[in-house]
Design a protein around this nucleic acid. Structure first.
Length: 273
DNA sequence: ACTTTACCCTGTAAGC
DNA sequence: TGCTTACAGGGTAAAG
């Protein structure tokens, strides 16, 4: 499940290999991937446009085109952006192909078809930006986080997954950050003390920043890979996520798993209170 | 206004 | 061995 560190890894690859290139044409193999009813209009609008910059907002990849519009890509569960030679046949599950002007193609590959690509005007991008909470690595303070949690009675784990509270955290890093902060995932969000909120913010930033340096987490089923097909290296450092029954790295108590808001949640019942 | 549930999808693994 | 079922979960829309 690509989250902030995985999306950031892809964006850095795009900055290196795709920014400055011009899109020659686009081919859509699975129409629902493109969030626009008129696919022909989408193809016309991106064709001939140069990619001026690559950025990230939450889990969204944002490519600015020289038309002033923004190509946004959300990988959701199994989406991948891959750079391929123009002569290479698309691999299985390829949904959209963008041909570039340097004999390469940008392939959007997505086994489960949840990923979405949209072409947004500046005002639409601003609306998307406004819907999302702060960026945890650059724009989130403890007081802002506290304010976002204060009115929520839902479990803190569920609050961390709510992209309007903060943007970019998914199931892996929510569990990892709560373990690092020593906070039980089922604690109501509005019961965290000031100290706990500060500890949670520090844990989130540490867990996310470290995962970025390791180029994200590649799990056996989601198989996240970067733009050039490279796996992440963070999976060997997970403390609780998908380690049900394994000893807690701090106290050796077996890690437990519960379902919270329809999501698997992993924690140490001794260290997290 | 907040919270929960169903849905979209396919491959893998477990159960009978 | 072969079929059926559960599970993985990000975001959105609908229901509560």
């Amino acid at each position: 499940m690509p989250e902030l560190p995985e999306v950031e890894t892809v964006v850095r690859g795009l900055r290196e290999h795709v920014v400055g290139r011009t899109i020659i044409s686009a081919t859509i193999f699975w129409p629902k991937t493109v969030q626009k009813p008129d696919l022909a209009a989408f193809i016309r609008a991106v064709s001939g446009r140069t990619i001026e910059s690559a950025g990230r907002r939450g889990k969204y990849i944002v490519l600015r085109l020289d038309s002033g519009d923004y190509l946004t890509i959300h990988l959701r569960m199994t989406g991948k952006l891959l750079l391929a030679a123009a002569s290479a046949p698309p691999r299985l599950h390829t949904r959209v192909v963008f041909a570039l002007d340097d004999s390469h193609e940008m392939h959007f590959v997505d086994l489960r078809k949840f990923g979405r690509i949209a072409l947004l005007a500046a005002a639409e991008l601003a609306a998307l930006d406004a819907r999302l909470g702060p960026e945890p690595l650059t724009d989130l303070s403890a007081s802002t986080l506290a304010a976002g949690l204060a009115k929520r009675k839902i479990a803190i784990k569920s609050a961390l997954l709510d992209q309007s509270v903060l943007a970019g955290v998914g199931n892996i890093y929510a569990d990892e950050a709560l373990f690092r902060a020593g906070i039980h995932p089922q604690r109501p969000a509005n019961t965290l003390s000031t100290t706990e909120t500060e500890r949670l913010l520090a844990a989130l930033q540490s867990v996310l920043a470290t995962a970025v340096t390791r180029h994200g987490t590649t799990l056996s089923d989601e198989q996240f890979i970067g733009l050039q097909g490279r796996m992440g290296e963070n999976q060997g450092y997970l403390t609780v996520f998908r380690r049900t029954g394994a000893p807690c790295p701090e106290c050796a108590t077996p890690i437990e798993r519960v379902r919270l808001g329809g999501r698997s949640t992993h924690f140490c019942p001794h260290c997290q209170t």
